[in-house]
Design a protein around this nucleic acid. Structure first.
Length: 220
DNA sequence: CTCCAGGACAAGC
DNA sequence: GCTTGTCATGGA
């Protein structure tokens, strides 16, 4: 049986550093985290480009809803997400739109505030904590559950317990959580349904991740 | 045409 | 409690 750390190392050897999160600023990263909810990143990129360099909490809050919806339209769910962007913009302004100001608060409290905004669930909140504020929260998404379950891990059922489960079994460092989640997403993309199953793959009808992580199995 | 994407939330049972 | 529906666009 492989440990979580084995899997991390295997993924890292296969794909190398992923350079997450791709954003020019903390606020762009937060915006991307909301826009990418159940949406492909390519669509999010279109939406981000539509801001045309105007992306900021001030702009979002002063922007009429119909115009904001028009900007983020490519990312889908634009009515919901426009409201969510307004919410998080208002929140960020309470910290003067400065990451350092946010970081004066206790991380757990920031996470609670994000969760209380509405439209930000555990995964999005942890993505923001990890990638925007560099705090060690392990991000659990559907890829993570699928991969680990298929590799034989007996995961808890709710999000918080899975997060703790993973955090307790890895070096407690944000840089590692950062890379690990990015690698899992990368691996999922490389092994998505639309591609043919790799040689020797035991899985069917979903992600074609091999059940063992020896070198040959990880090669695609 | 169908299915899915780096979810969240409410309603229904 | 768990399951299903809703939100929406663009690419394979």
């Amino acid at each position: 049986m492989y440990t979580l750390y084995d899997i991390y190392n295997s993924l890292f050897e296969t794909y190398g550093p992923q350079g997450w999160w791709p954003a020019e600023s903390v606020f762009e990263m937060i915006t991307g985290a909301i826009l990418v909810q159940n949406t492909s990143w390519s669509n999010v990129e279109r939406a981000l480009l539509n801001f045309g360099g105007r992306l900021s909490p001030q702009f979002i809050l002063s922007c009429p809803m119909d115009e904001l919806c028009d900007i983020i339209r490519p990312s889908g769910f634009y009515n919901l997400k426009a409201e969510r962007l307004k919410n998080v913009s208002r929140w960020y302004q309470r910290y003067d739109c400065h990451p350092e100001t946010v970081l004066r608060e206790e991380p757990g409290r920031i996470r609670e505030e994000l969760l209380d905004l509405g439209g930000i669930g555990y995964e999005t909140a942890d993505s923001i904590m990890l990638y925007a504020f560099d705090k060690p929260y392990f991000v659990v998404d559907t890829y993570t559950r699928r991969l680990l379950e298929r590799l034989g891990f007996d995961l808890p059922d709710n999000y918080e317990e899975i997060r703790q489960y993973c955090e307790n079994r890895l070096p407690y460092r944000s840089a590692l959580f950062n890379e690990f989640h990015a690698l899992i997403v990368r691996h999922a993309k490389e092994n998505c349904k639309k591609r043919p199953a790799c040689e020797g793959c035991v899985l069917k009808n979903d992600c074609t991740v091999p059940l063992s992580l020896d070198k040959t199995a990880m090669m695609l």
